[in-house]
Design a protein around this nucleic acid. Structure first.
Lengths: 212, 212, 212, 212
DNA sequence: TATGAATGAGGGTTCATTCAT
DNA sequence: AATGAATGAACCCTCATTCAT
């Protein structure tokens, strides 16, 4: 199970009190998410973020080394929202197909809720430097693995019939397709409601998982 | 077959000779593609582009109104590479499954060849303004439609068994997954060669198209 | 009658045929007057002038050395309009007071007609270089002298009673006040029509000229 | 006495300390007045102003939104010099004719002192945008009103005999003629000293005010 | 820890003028 | 004489980051 290990990117701060750091960063993230998703990362000024966070620019830069750090915090925050939603449904004890269906549905629903942020997250990832980006991609991998494991369990229990080679692809597809709902909702919503879309997607997924 | 009509975004020029415009723009695009995919759109200077294009900055701005226009030209150019590769295989007269397989393979191969540019194209699309972006998305739609039509033909001829509702989703998935090869080649290539990946993908696709 | 002699500023041209020069310059002036009075000298592009003149930029610069030359031509042209209107009424043989009244009225009427251009002419004079500006001021002096002479005749004929010291001041005031009609018409026209303003002005002038 | 109310143009700043703003702006104005009156507004670089103000360009632009704002500040400053000089003599308790004579003399003297700036102020006003210009013109109106009131008092006290219709014209003429001293000093000073000019002007004014 | 003024390099774009055709 | 593409220096303004208070 060896995996390339990537150091987690650490956002530095000059402030000692960890609780204060967390509180202030939450304020920064809240503000940044709003402005970023309205104007994009590059078009947003650090001052704008600070202003919206009701914080002084100087203060802000004590909780963050860079403008880029803010982006990283924002991306991680959004990612956590998705992760939490996905992991939340995993506690229940269901059969494999129901489990994966729940997961997929949960995924689409959270993506739908925070679709602006999802778009932001994926559009601006490229503005992160190598270290931050690979740290972020690592987080993404966690989601993939989570889905992969659910599929694998279905295979092990004999419910799913999938070429083991394809498992990781299918897991990734699920994620990518969920993101696409955020990117193309404007177009997809002409033909689908969120729920009908989910149903269709799960249908297609079943075809793949029950492939014989 | 009515579709929301989007005005094509026109890159303005003050130069009258159309051949010269085409020639110079090709030079600009060539230079820009290189620098953009190395440093990204925002980090690239207009002067850098002009220099690499062996052109005066002022001259460049006679063929382009904006830095953004350069990005638009670049995106369209890259898109055309893909489109041409995809449409090139469509001339042959094959049965439906072979046809779509050829298309998918062609898609992955061209994406693999110009993967840096594909990444660039999708990462920076967000830097286009509304008009340019929707004009670009329109071009994307052409690719989608092309694949959709191939699937539809397969359905009509009774070869494919797909819920008509899903056709457009499957077509879009094909495209998105091909783009993902560009974005995740670094990771996917640990488990797959390009050709083995194509094979796997076509296998999965078959499962979907022959769903019964 | 010695007066500091100022060389007349000559607008150079590389074109030989004088009639063509005159024709083309008339076209240039016509175009420039329009754009200048809309957008001001600095905000106007040489290309805009050429375009409006239905002329190539290169062609235009064969009839004019500079952008500034165009401004000079424009100022002189506008000035000529005023001069012609003023000199036109001087042919008649009238008594001194009637004569000067006619002049004043003529002045206000022409200024009113071309008030946009008058504003332009005085606002942008400062953009002329020393040579061109003093050549232009020389032309202005001709207007002053014309009025001065009319007043002097009135004094010589015993009709006007003015301290000879004041003559040139009064002449200049007449001109300046006429220009002011152009500059402040927007405000003055709340209380006066053009004709009532002329009447009031002539009344005030009479007071000065009949001072006892 | 209702008059069209024009919003005062406000020069924005991102700096919070009002005293600092005043101090820095004074430095900017000082520098700008010098360079502008040497080279004109358009020929002057924002960097030149900042350099002369011993200030960083970025710093300067925190006290001013625009190059145009600098011009506005400069115009207002120069205007204040005149206004103060004019209002300073108004405190004394004199009879009407002496009062207006004092005013006129004060006006000419201050215009003479800062004549370069007066020329600048009136030449470049046209470079202000609509909002700033009308705000500036409003200030001008204050001077006019001041003189108008002095004349009106003279009329009320029976000293002056002027058609009430003409009052505002005469007031405006006084101002315009004072400005003209700045514009034409080079020519006028051949025949007049400042003081002899003032005397002549006051003589002419008396003729108008005592018109019978 | 908070404040907010200072910094200054850098970037996109313009445009008068030229010159080869 | 007419054309119009080429030139390139120069300009205004921005904004992430720092640091003295």
């Amino acid at each position: 199970m060896s995996r390339t290990h990537t150091e987690e990117y650490i956002v530095e701060t000059s402030v000692k009190d960890p609780e204060l750091v967390e509180k202030r960063r939450a304020e920064i993230i809240d503000a940044a998410v709003k402005v970023f998703s309205e104007k994009g990362y590059h078009a947003t000024t650090t001052k704008e973020i600070a202003d919206l966070a009701a914080m002084n620019v100087g203060t802000m830069f004590q909780y963050v080394k860079n403008k880029q750090d803010i982006l990283y915090l924002v991306c991680c925050h959004i990612h956590s929202l998705i992760e939490e939603a996905l992991f939340a449904v995993a506690v229940e004890d269901l059969d494999s197909m129901e489990m994966i269906s729940k997961s997929v549905a949960a995924l689409y629903r959270i993506v739908d809720q925070v679709s602006d942020y999802v778009v932001l997250m994926y559009q601006e990832t490229s503005s992160l430097d190598k270290a931050a980006r690979s740290s972020f991609l690592n987080r993404e991998q966690r989601l993939c693995n989570h889905l992969e494991n659910q599929i694998k369990k279905g295979i092990e229990s004999g419910v799913f019939k999938v070429d083991p080679e394809s498992v990781s692809l299918i897991a990734e597809d699920i994620l990518v397709q969920a993101q696409m709902w955020a990117f193309r909702r404007w177009s997809l919503s002409k033909k689908y409601t969120l729920e009908s879309y989910i149903t269709t997607r799960i249908q297609l997924l079943k075809t793949l998982l029950y492939q014989s």
